[in-house]
Amino acid sequence: MTQNRLPASAPAAKRKLLNFGNIWDTFGMLFVFVLLFFVCSALIPNFFTWINMKVLGLSVSVVGMVACGMVFCLVIADLDLSVGAVVACAGVVTSWVLQQTDNMFLGIACGLACGAFFGLMNGIFVAVMKNNALIVTLATQQVARGAAYTICGGVPIGIMNEKFYLLGDSDILGIPTPIILMAVCFVIFGFLLSNTIFGRNSLAIGGNNEAARLAGINVVKTKIVIFTITGIVSAFAGIVLTSRLTSGQPMNGMGLELNAISACVLGGVALIGGNGRLHTVIDGFLFWGRWISP
């Protein structure tokens, strides 16, 4: 019984150190990012210009959106390797529907439905049939990539709909729309993870699957929802990318899944599950984005 009091009765100096650890845990990656940012600004000519910032933001916006879904997958100690292929497939589906109907909303809806479908499949195979997520999503990756190539016949599908370009190639208050959309995703998913029962249940499942089940959490349902949402947000990222490129390309998003996972892990999401906050992921993501961009 005495050992419980240990943390409380620890010397004050030790407590301070602990606090520093906490601060480092929370803001460490942001600090590293800021440092890197200043070093780059000082050493690289034309780095700290508005144009360069816009290019940098645009280049990472797709990964940023995908990472939002990936955080949830990692939090439940699974992962989704199909996101890159879903990005491509949703883009191709959207541009194909646009080509056929010239109906922008139908196109976007079909693209999102495509993502939802692959996500749902992932969820069912992982949660209901209890297959390993690595294998399931690797298979989905192949299927989605194959579907993308099949639908477009191996050649990019050009888009003529001018209105659709707005999604990827416009500014709001001087900031490119994809960056705004990415920020919106961060806000929504951050809120989902920290402030809703869905997010807390996800964290609980990652913390201890069996204990969560015995505490009355519907583990199967939660996992299916997570994979489906990941599919949808990946599809959305794919649609935005397609709009920016003005064509649906089946080779989009190659290796994107690993970039998204890197950003999450740099942001302190534990691969063993149960831990993760979106604002630290954003820090990790910023750092990662600065690191890979030229």
Binding site: I197, R200, A204, N208, A212, A215
Partner: peptide, 25 residues
């Protein structure tokens, strides 16, 4: 449950979360 560590607690989460995990719904 019998095996608190594997079936009962969420070890890496706070006491508060562990108390509220079920009732929060």
């Amino acid at each position: 449950p019998e095996d608190r560590k594997s079936d009962g607690i969420l070890g890496i989460h706070s006491v508060r979360d562990n108390i509220n995990i079920s009732a929060r719904r």
